[in-house]
Amino acid sequence: MTLSVAAPAGGAVVALLSTNPAVATVPANVTVPAGATGANFTVSTTAVTASTSVTIWAANYSTVLTVTPVPTLSSLSLNPASVTAGTTSSGRVTLTAVAPAGGAVVALASNNTAVATVPTSVTVAAGDTSATFTVSTNSLTACASSVATISATYGGVTKSAGLTVAPATDTVAIQQADYFANRHELRVAATSTGSTATLQVYVTSTGELIGTLTHYDGNRYSGRFTWPVNPQNITVRSSLCGSATKAVTSK
């Protein structure tokens, strides 16, 4: 506080008052030393859930102090929550109140970095309540979906969200599935959109492996296999996770 003239000998005692001491408290008075024109005093505040204005009085003069909530983490979301391996998802963290001056640094983590990775943190800019970040996914080594749990921590609060990552599959099509009973021979021709795929033929009903097709031109595969009976239906499975099923024609 500041006086209009220097304080007299012995100093000037100025009475202080808060209109809402439950939110902001001040000492009963402050003394301006002799010859000085001002003195400092401390205003102590308590936690609030919403912005609250308090009027602080010094003698017949006043000023308004606004006490704002201390933000914590409100939520973490992923969009989309299911992706194909090798693609990304967008994460969003939201605070309970606006970020303070300098911003709010929210710590991030993934519990399965072989499947999905995140930056170590994301900053909510001062005055904002949310920020976004990118979740990157890796190629999967198995033909099954995997889940990574993404977590965010700020203000002593941690939120988590699950990301399901599905394998990137090729498309398999069967052009020929013929069984020649007199020779006990099964002929199969198929294609895959993945030129590096390995295609294997199975009996659909039992899952028994019949054999591996030969990759002979671009995305085309074929094979001839000795088999005791007509398998009725075959399934061609790719090492890149695609598959197709076709009824076998007797010849």
Rank of each mutant, 00 (worst) to 15 (best):
Ile234Glu: 01
Ser250Lys: 08
Asn20Thr: 09
Thr198His: 06
Thr84Pro: 02
Ala81Ile: 12
Thr68His: 08
Ser195Asp: 07
Ser130Gln: 08
Asn111Gln: 05
His215Tyr: 12
Pro231Glu: 00
Thr52Met: 03
Arg237Asp: 03
Ala142Trp: 11
Ala99Tyr: 05
Thr52Asn: 04
Thr214His: 04
Thr212Leu: 13
Val106Glu: 01
Ser51Asp: 09
Asn230Val: 00
Val5Tyr: 02
Ala28Trp: 12
Ala9Glu: 15
Val122Pro: 04
Ser136Glu: 02
Tyr179Val: 00
Tyr179Phe: 09
Val248Trp: 01
Asp217Lys: 04
Leu199Phe: 01
Ala168Ile: 10
Ser239Asn: 03
Thr42Ser: 10
Ala12Trp: 05
Asn60Glu: 15
Leu78Asn: 07
Thr55His: 05
Val30Ile: 01
Val105Arg: 07
Tyr154Cys: 05
Thr94Gly: 04
Leu108Met: 03
Leu3Gln: 00
Gln175His: 13
Gly127Asn: 00
Thr193Val: 05
Thr63Ile: 13
Gly162Cys: 12
Leu65Tyr: 11
Asp178His: 14
Val106Lys: 03
Ser222Asn: 13
Ala197Trp: 08
Ala181Lys: 08
Phe225Ser: 07
Ala142Tyr: 09
Ala81Pro: 01
Ala116Met: 07
Val13Asn: 14
Arg183Lys: 12
Gly91Ile: 10
Asp128Phe: 10
Val201Pro: 01
Val23Ile: 13
Val43Phe: 00
Ser145Tyr: 07
Ser205Met: 10
Gly11Gln: 04
Asp178Lys: 14
Ile150Ala: 13
Ala9Val: 13
Ser195Glu: 07
Asp217Ser: 13
Ala161Glu: 09
Ser110Phe: 06
Pro80Glu: 06
Ala36Ser: 15
Gln200Gly: 06
Val135Leu: 06
Ser130Asn: 12
Ala107Asp: 08
Ser51Gly: 09
Ser4Leu: 14
Ala36Gln: 13
Leu186Asp: 06
Pro27Met: 02
Ala116Val: 00
Thr123Ser: 04
Ala247Thr: 07
His215Arg: 14
Phe180Met: 10
Thr134Ala: 02
Ser139Lys: 15
Leu140Gln: 00
Thr198Lys: 06
Thr153Gln: 02
Thr49Ile: 11
Thr117Arg: 00
Asn60Ile: 11
Ser195Thr: 15
Met1Ala: 09
Ala6Gly: 15
Arg92Lys: 14
His184Trp: 04
Met1Lys: 04
Thr141Arg: 06
Ala181Met: 11
Leu65Phe: 11
Ala125Arg: 05
Glu208Asp: 14
Thr191Met: 02
Thr45Gly: 09
Ser250Asp: 13
Ala142His: 09
Gly127Tyr: 01
Val172Asn: 06
Thr117His: 01
Asp128Tyr: 07
Ser77Cys: 03
Ser77Lys: 02
Ser192Ala: 14
Ala101Trp: 10
Thr49Pro: 03
Ser222Trp: 10
Leu186Pro: 08
Ala109Met: 03
Phe180Pro: 05
Ala22Gln: 15
